[in-house]
């Protein structure tokens, strides 16, 4: 069967009968965490610990998601605090 170039994802989606449930769940979870973090950063720069307290999210989860958002270019690393311990993070507007 000839499948049009650039539309092959649709072909596989139809062949598999939809999107795998697990992939859908992971995307949903990431989007929720991304939204929470980016919303919180709208008010200004925050450290991982401050974000963790504000969002009531475990600090390792904040760190992981924040680092991923830095990698994807949505968040930037700011300055380090006076104690040279924690960096702040800000939105890449």
């Amino acid at each position: 069967m000839e499948v049009e170039k650039g539309k092959t994802a649709k072909y596989l989606r139809e062949k598999l009968g939809g999107i795998p449930e697990q992939a859908k769940e992971r995307l949903k979870e990431f989007n929720q965490q991304k939204k929470k973090i980016t919303e919180a950063l709208k008010d200004g720069e925050l450290t991982v610990k401050q974000l963790s307290e504000k969002l009531e999210m475990p600090s390792h989860e904040v760190m992981y998601n924040l680092s991923s958002l830095v990698k994807y270019g949505q968040v930037l690393v700011g300055d380090i605090d006076d104690m040279d311990e924690y960096f702040t993070y800000k939105l890449n507007k």
Partner: peptide, 18 residues
């Protein structure tokens, strides 16, 4: 998630889910 976003932006049409 087979959304096809990668295919849409690929300038060389090298992505192929077949």
């Amino acid at each position: 998630t087979l959304c096809g976003a990668c295919e849409k932006v690929c300038p060389t049409n090298c992505i192929d889910f077949t």
